[in-house]
């Protein structure tokens, strides 16, 4: 009992659940506002994603006549649940050290694709030809960006593992703790290629240009999302907000987790700032400065640049550099 209550708290309030949702929406709002500034626009209010969700909650959910109802409606929940669990695994240094337990990096690796899978399920359940195209594109892209992700995770885990006595350290809290004690990986030249690979992985997993192929508006009209409306669509947006906290938080935990002096509250803010910084560099500016790859180009891109970079780090770590 004593273990479950805090775990539940971490899942539902902080850092998962409420906190992650709020942080995700805030990050989205910031993203839109900064993007607007880059394009000489005023942009929406910071809370715009919140208004959007409230609005979507009040709309009707239309289900295409030819759709598979059950799959169509559960798909948005799959992604949401997966991301809510993931969010609880992200350590916020100085405020929360992550759920105790081994191997949460592996759990993250397995859960991270869930939103994409949800999209694929939803897309194929909607029985729209665009959904089907979105499905195959998402699949293709996922295969491409999972490779560098795995290599980056392994590089980090082995770097920490090597320091604590061989093998790989798959606990995120241990990874963070190690860096707080021995210096952050962002200052470690051996880990730079992996960090760059992670930066390149982010736009792919978040589905923003140049890797927004599965939802390409002008080609396949938002593909899998085409048929969704109302609360169901809202869940997809919510999932995407949560996912951005997860992947950005993961990046922070893996490369620059150090806290600042001050209380937990200050460190939560510091964590958010770091997430925001990571987001601006890897997502906001990148998507403003690029167009969209064709799916085959996106695929080869991942195999050509991020994968070798991440492998380079991995090999260096393995060689004990």
């Amino acid at each position: 009992m004593n273990d479950i209550l805090p775990a539940l708290f971490h899942m539902l309030v902080f850092p998962g659940g409420l906190f992650a949702v709020a942080a995700g929406l805030l990050l989205k709002g910031l993203d839109r506002r900064v993007e607007a500034r880059l394009q000489r626009r005023v942009g929406p209010p910071l809370l715009q994603p919140v208004f959007d969700l409230i609005k979507l909650a009040g709309k009707e959910t239309l289900i295409p006549a030819t759709a598979n109802r059950a799959a169509f409606l559960t798909a948005p929940l799959i992604g949401f649940t997966g991301m809510a669990v993931c969010a609880a695994l992200i350590p916020v240094s100085g405020a929360y050290s992550g759920l105790a337990g081994m191997g949460d990096m592996l759990v993250l690796f397995y859960l991270l694709p869930l939103p994409a899978i949800a999209l694929m399920v939803g897309g194929s359940a909607s029985s729209s030809p665009f959904g089907a195209l979105g499905f195959s594109r998402e699949m293709c892209l996922m295969l491409a960006y999972e490779i560098p992700l795995l290599a980056v995770l392994l590089a980090v885990a082995m770097r920490v593992g090597a320091a604590v006595g061989g093998g790989a350290e798959l606990s995120l809290s241990a990874v963070a703790a190690h860096q707080i004690a021995h210096g952050q990986f962002i200052a470690d030249p051996v880990m730079w290629p992996a960090f760059i690979a992670y930066l390149l992985f982010l736009p792919g997993t978040m589905g923003v240009p140049p890797f927004d192929v599965p939802e390409a508006e002008t080609e396949i009209i938002e593909g899998p999302l085409l048929e969704y409306s109302g609360p169901a669509l809202g869940f997809f947006h919510l999932t995407s907000a949560l996912k951005s906290v997860v992947v950005l938080g993961l990046g922070v935990a893996m490369f620059f987790p150090a806290p600042v002096p001050g209380g937990a509250f200050v460190n939560v803010l510091w964590f958010l700032c770091k997430c925001a910084g990571l987001m601006l560099v890897s997502l906001t500016v990148v998507k403003s400065a690029t167009g969209r790859f064709r799916v085959d180009q996106a695929f080869t891109f991942y195999l050509r640049y991020p994968a070798p970079l991440a492998l380079a780090s991995l090999i260096l770590v393995w060689q004990g550099a």
Binding site: L38, Q39, R40, R41, A289
Partner: peptide, 19 residues
Amino acid sequence: MFGFLKILAANVAKGPSTD
């Protein structure tokens, strides 16, 4: 991409052109 970053930077510096 890098050529376009210059334009983005200039955009930020110039501020919004919104009516």
